[in-house]
Simulated assay, not measured.
Amino acid sequence: MNRFLIRRIPSALLVLFATSVLAFLLPRMAPGDPAAAVAGPDAGPEEIAAIRADLGFDEPWVSQYLHWLGGVLRGDFGTSYITGRSVTDLIGDRFGSTVQLALLAALFMITIGLLLGVAAGSSRRPWARSLLDLTCTTLLATPAFLTGLLLALLLGVAWQVLPVSGEVSLFDNAEIGIQYLLLPAFALALPQAASLARLIQSAMRQSRTEEYVQTAVAKGASARRVTVRHVLRNSLASALVSLGMRLGDLLGGAIVIEAIFARNGLGSLAVTSSAQRDYLVIEALILLAVGIAVLLQLLTEVGLSLLDPRIRLEGAR
Rank of each mutant, 00 (worst) to 15 (best):
T79H: 04
T79I: 15
S80E: 03
S80D: 05
Y81L: 07
Y81R: 00
Y81H: 08
Y81F: 15
I82K: 03
I82L: 11
T83R: 11
T83Y: 11
G84P: 04
G84I: 05
R85P: 06
S86E: 08
T88N: 13
T88D: 12
D89A: 15
D89H: 11
I91E: 09
I91W: 05
G92F: 09
G92M: 10
G92A: 13
G92D: 12
D93Y: 04
D93R: 06
R94T: 10
R94G: 09
F95W: 11
G96D: 11
G96K: 00
S97M: 13
T98A: 05
V99D: 06
V99M: 12
V99P: 01
Q100G: 04
Q100K: 06
A102L: 07
A102D: 13
L104H: 12
A105S: 13
A105P: 00
A106S: 15
A106V: 06
L107V: 14
L107E: 10
L107M: 15
F108M: 08
F108V: 07
I110A: 07
I110W: 06
T111N: 08
I112E: 00
I112F: 04
G113N: 03
L114N: 05
L115Y: 12
L115N: 07
L115W: 13
V118I: 15
A120L: 07
R124K: 15
P126E: 13
W127L: 15
W127V: 15
W127N: 14
